[in-house]
Design a binder for these strands. Sequence first.
DNA 1: GCACACGTTGTTATCGATGCCAATACAACT
DNA 2: AGTTGTATTGGCATCGATAACAACGTGTGC
Lengths: 363, 363
Amino acid sequence: MAKRSADGGERAPGMADVARVAGVSAQTVSRVLSGHPNVQERTRAKVMAAVDQLGYRRNNAARVLSSGRSRAIGVVNLQTNFYSRAAVTSGIENAAQAAGYAVSMATTASLDSFAIDRALSRLADQGVDGVILAVPLIHSSERIEQFTRSTPTITIDGSRTESAEVVAIDQALAARLATEYLLDLGHETVWHVAGPQEWLDATSRREGWRATLEAAGRSVPPPLEGDWSPASGYRNGLILGRIPDVTAVFVASDEMAFGVIKALHELGRRVPDDISVVGVDNIELAEYCSPPLTTVAQPFAHMGALAVAHLLRHIADPDAAPRPTVVEPRLIARASTAPRAGTGPAPAPPTRRPDAMAAPSRE
Amino acid sequence: MAKRSADGGERAPGMADVARVAGVSAQTVSRVLSGHPNVQERTRAKVMAAVDQLGYRRNNAARVLSSGRSRAIGVVNLQTNFYSRAAVTSGIENAAQAAGYAVSMATTASLDSFAIDRALSRLADQGVDGVILAVPLIHSSERIEQFTRSTPTITIDGSRTESAEVVAIDQALAARLATEYLLDLGHETVWHVAGPQEWLDATSRREGWRATLEAAGRSVPPPLEGDWSPASGYRNGLILGRIPDVTAVFVASDEMAFGVIKALHELGRRVPDDISVVGVDNIELAEYCSPPLTTVAQPFAHMGALAVAHLLRHIADPDAAPRPTVVEPRLIARASTAPRAGTGPAPAPPTRRPDAMAAPSRE
DNA sequence: GCACACGTTGTTATCGATGCCAATACAACT
DNA sequence: AGTTGTATTGGCATCGATAACAACGTGTGC
């Protein structure tokens, strides 16, 4: 019944053992270890000495049971190797760790509400204090809504439920930055390879792209759609490359963008000479593949940290008003884009200075 | 003191509540929920009905405290976005989840024993049943050894401690596959951009490369060294590209390999026409960047799953004999490699039959 | 000089589920 | 019929820490 260390019949020391060695009560040991202010310095020292001597560690399960708080947060994530997911997760872990919170992961292979509900269930069973939902929530369900109502929840990337706070990157702005940059280079219009439309950020990018073109009075080509994978970019590239009009493409992710570029190359269209390509994400390889990819950098780690901050605030004060937060992406110009062939060496003055390269610091 | 649901004064239902509604004892509820065999079907149904009606969930903390097992495993990981780390982690999460175990993450920014010890501490505080150490352990420490002695631990990628089981990819074989492939293409010798030598898999690759060259009676060029980043590959590529002899390079990771290729391009050396490049990892973009990268694929997800399987076995039976396991990598030939320039369409007879892809034999 | 406040420490009840053991019921055997 | 066995169920102690409250000693103000 009791937990025993693996190497013998010895049981791990408990607070009572520490208390005995230090000559105080268990409660005092608890106070010392929790950093409670009202403890005499001498007592504190005695306790700490006993703790060191016994190699004592507090039993987390007992603390959770007793205090009702687990000091753990859960993250629901998609089971993929997308750069963006990993980057956000990493930001979350750092921030949580710094705040003294543990992170429990629950990945889901599918986006249907059933699968997501299962992931949330696992986290609830773990007794997490709060949850960061880092997957798009296409269809919410009654069970999910009930969960978000009873457990502090932050959603990332635009998953929307009634009772959760949202932290997101301004995807419409990302699309606008990319599209305007291409228009400023003299391209007549800009084609788009979108992400899967179940993803809210994919639809936001598509709408941002469309709105930008319309605002500039340009024709809006029919959007293509991929699934974020390089392979799907490649497939779409094989289509785009066969359309003579195409001189500029905004692709909804870097990984798809490289697939597009590969296909264009195979069809004999040069990038950027014949066709300019802009991606989104600024993955680490974006600068080192050929050609270096112009892209829109997203502050993933920052967003993860922000999500944690909001979540902890929400845990501390469940009644605080939700406060949606949007962080801004940034264009990074590289060599996959060029002035439209025929417009000459001096492109029309850009609406924004292309100075984004100045400090391309990754986070 | 008690945990209350966020939306009111109601406390979450406990086993006693379920028992009352079902008209049985709490103990019977526990048995039903644990899948204990000796429960009458009628009783089980009554209990399940009560559980549904109340929306009851077992309190994890109480279970852990009472049973002494947490059904959670910990993973120590490096705080980076390396593809390999993410891929292994994903394999671990799937396998753990399938086995009904939760996963707790602890990332470390540095590899020194102090930082790793802190990560292990956090996991120990969480009360995990076992740990997968997915970072290289350069210097073990007494505290780390003590931890691995008292907690089931599996190390991945060659971190070695006295008392932990090891699951690893055969890195020497990976190096041999790459090097032999290049020699078979007619290259006189093969240069090497190694990973940071604190990483055991980096040194294993370097030694495998060296041994293969020596076995073939070739000269062994001085190895270069990067830090896994594309940028470091680029820096090394700027050096390699200035050495006329170089016709073939084995780079210890795909991301560095693309950095190398970019530098070679900038120096006017064509890949693969002038210089062949082989990477390691088979990241998703390897096929879609230009040129498509010949690389050695590593079964990351499989390794993660294997690590979990071993760990759970070890948790179930702490006295079982450690059983180191090695899984085998696989060469994937793409377009970044070509027969040595000047050897004509028919390369010199290879030192080994170029069947490396078919059935990689162990050494 | 007395009452009161405050800082410090100890005592007790409690969190919620499980392990162990006992008790019951009912079937199967000698 | 008596006895043994087995399946099912309940009672109680327990896991290890914390919350709430009580108790103690000391200083302070009136």
